[in-house]
Amino acid sequence: NITAAIYDEIQQEMKRAKVSQALFAKVAANKSQGWLCELLRWKENPSPENRTLWENLCTIRRFLNLPQHERDVIY
């Protein structure tokens, strides 16, 4: 289940792992930094009809659900 909290989790994970938006986007969703920036802007007004947005957030959720040491190896 995806909630608005995922946006904060993304920010916290980037700080914790000391990774850039570009690197996080690449490893978590195989996307660009610009894409992640755009995604983070949706926090203010996520559209329930935007299926692509929710699919991408689900992809990021799966990455964030990995154990921390696995995420660190991927970075």
Rank of each mutant, 00 (worst) to 15 (best):
N1M: 15
I2H: 14
T3R: 09
T3M: 14
A4D: 15
A4N: 15
A4Q: 15
A5H: 14
A5L: 15
A5Q: 15
I6A: 04
I6W: 01
I6L: 11
D8I: 15
D8G: 08
D8K: 08
E9Y: 05
E9A: 11
E9H: 12
Q11K: 03
Q11Y: 06
Q12S: 08
M14N: 02
M14F: 11
A17K: 14
K18L: 10
V19N: 06
V19K: 02
V19F: 01
S20C: 01
Q21T: 09
Q21W: 14
Q21E: 09
A22G: 06
A22C: 03
L23Q: 14
L23H: 05
F24L: 07
A25M: 04
A25P: 02
K26N: 11
V27P: 00
V27M: 07
A29G: 10
A29E: 01
K31S: 07
K31R: 04
K31P: 00
S32R: 09
Q33G: 11
G34V: 08
G34C: 05
W35P: 11
W35R: 08
L36Y: 03
L36D: 01
L36T: 04
C37I: 12
E38W: 12
L39I: 14
L40F: 08
L40E: 06
R41A: 04
R41G: 11
R41D: 15
R41M: 04
W42I: 14
W42Y: 03
E44M: 11
S47L: 10
E49M: 05
N50H: 14
N50P: 03
R51K: 13
R51Y: 06
T52I: 05
L53E: 09
W54R: 14
W54C: 05
E55G: 05
E55I: 08
N56V: 03
N56Y: 13
N56K: 11
C58A: 04
C58D: 07
C58N: 11
T59Q: 12
T59K: 04
T59Y: 05
T59A: 06
R61A: 13
R61K: 06
R62C: 15
F63G: 00
L64G: 00
N65T: 12
N65C: 03
N65R: 08
L66M: 13
P67R: 06
H69R: 10
E70I: 01
R71L: 07
R71N: 00
D72A: 11
D72Q: 07
D72F: 04
V73C: 13
I74E: 13
I74C: 02
Y75W: 07
